[in-house]
């Protein structure tokens, strides 16, 4: 399994706001176990999708100079099930960005059949920056992660 929990960005306003989508499908193995006979998108993976949306929003502001690590989720609320066939829309707003890290507010909406969107989850996420030269980090290179893992394709919002 590859650790991409967003399919594509649909809006990206540098340093301000980012919107990404994630389509939930029965092709995802884990949904057959979570739960047998009643597949729902795990809340933890929605949080990961929200963190990827917010983390990339923060990272891009600094041209991916820092390693952005999810540090804390001060609050999160889930409002409804998300089922196969649903499209999740993650909207991240940058609340703070500074040398040490940043914080974001992220919502997850599901688009209904009639085109309206209903709130599925909302949270606040605090990220910290680690530097490449931090001895505790070994040699993680955030740029390589973003540019060589294919994440850039996810970021193409022009199409």
């Amino acid at each position: 399994m590859r650790w991409f929990w967003i399919d594509r960005f649909v809006e990206f306003e540098s340093g301000v706001r980012a919107k990404a989508v994630k389509n939930v499908t029965m092709a995802e193995d884990h949904l057959h176990d979570h739960y047998p006979g009643f597949p729902v998108m795990p809340g933890s993976l929605m949080l990961e999708g929200m963190a990827q949306t917010g983390g990339i929003l923060l990272g891009e502001k600094n041209a991916f100079e820092h390693i952005v690590i999810l540090a804390k989720v001060p609050k999160i609320t889930y409002h409804r099930w998300v089922r196969p066939g649903d499209q999740l829309i993650y909207t991240a707003t940058l609340l703070d960005a500074r040398d040490e890290g940043g914080s974001t507010e992220v919502t997850a909406h599901v688009r209904e059949h009639d085109g309206t969107e209903s709130l599925a989850a909302e949270c606040e996420i605090v990220f910290v920056h680690l530097d490449d030269n931090d001895p505790a980090m070994g040699h993680v290179d955030q740029k390589n992660f973003v540019f060589e893992s294919g994440l850039l394709d996810v970021m193409d919002v022009s199409s």
């Binding site: 540090a71 804390k72 001060p74 609340l95 703070d96 040490e100 890290g101 914080s103 605090v126 910290v128």
Partner: peptide, 8 residues
Amino acid sequence: IDFLDIVF
């Protein structure tokens, strides 16, 4: 990590 959150 809470110290950063408190500062924010």
